[in-house]
Simulated scan of single mutants.
Amino acid sequence: MSFFNKVLASIGVGNAKVDTKLSDSTFMSGDLISGVTEIEGGNTSQSVKSIYINVYTTYEREANDKKYTESVSIYSHMVNEPFIIEKDEKKIFPFSFNLPLNTPVTMGKTRVWLQTGLDIKNSVDPGDKDMIEIRPNAFIHAGLTAAQNLGLKLRNVDCEEAPRAYRGLTKFVQEFEFVANGGPFRGKFDEIEFTFIYKGLDQVELLIQVDRKVRGLGSLFSEALNMDESFIRLTLSKTDLASLESKLLKEITRYT
């Protein structure tokens, strides 16, 4: 019977089960995430090489004029050393790790989840999926607040393939797209986009893309050639956040 159970477990029948339980479900990028992973043995003893927890999100990439949605692991954490889980045995493993700084905010279409798996030789790896909420950190909160105070309305948030210059750092970036419904920029831009590139816990590079509105034949020609788009790059520390609104006003006004 033991041999028969091993054969069944190798195709996922009567296999060990895994369940990750988190101490919380809401975080910010860089936060410590902790909890326990519970393993329940199946119909036979099995050798578990490792328990791994991956942080996943999705992003869109474009190829051949088509858009594709890709799942990407932005962090991987190994919980334990190899062990044996006996038939019907239960084991509990605590874990903790810091979420990476580039963990996107769960706004718009963006989703973030933990995928827990068991690496079991000659068997289908069992898994567990846990959705988590990621709130804006200090940099993003300051950026969103400053944009709102300048009359910019958040229209869309999504993750896109990173520009070529940044693909050595990350596969994707999160874009916050605004429209100027009021304030000093009303009627002057089609849209404004913010992207935050993290340089460390206390420093971020804010990329701002401004798309000017078409005015006349010359502007229409510029738009056709994508010449109506301008890019602003700001390096910010936490001490800059209190004056971010005035910085944005000054920089973006240059392109009106």
Rank of each mutant, 00 (worst) to 15 (best):
K87A: 15
N226P: 07
I92Q: 13
I51K: 00
T44P: 07
V157E: 02
S76D: 07
T170V: 14
D31E: 04
G35M: 00
R254S: 14
K250F: 08
Q115A: 07
E229F: 06
F27N: 00
G35E: 00
S123N: 11
P136M: 12
E160A: 08
F185I: 06
F83A: 03
D65I: 05
V210H: 02
A138H: 09
I51Y: 00
D31A: 08
A180G: 01
V7E: 12
Y166P: 06
N5Y: 06
D190P: 10
M131D: 13
L217R: 13
V13C: 05
T37F: 00
I140L: 06
F178S: 03
M1F: 12
L201F: 07
K21S: 05
V179C: 04
F231I: 04
G35N: 03
Q115P: 04
Y68N: 11
E245N: 04
S96A: 15
I33M: 01
K109T: 14
Q115E: 11
D19V: 11
N54L: 14
Q209N: 08
M1H: 10
E160V: 07
D19W: 09
S73N: 12
R167V: 12
V157W: 02
E160Y: 10
D202A: 15
E70S: 09
P163K: 05
S237K: 12
F185L: 02
L217V: 14
A142H: 01
E40L: 08
S34Q: 04
I39V: 14
S243H: 05
N43C: 09
K199N: 15
S219V: 06
F3C: 11
L22K: 01
K153A: 15
P94E: 08
G35Q: 02
N226D: 10
N43M: 09
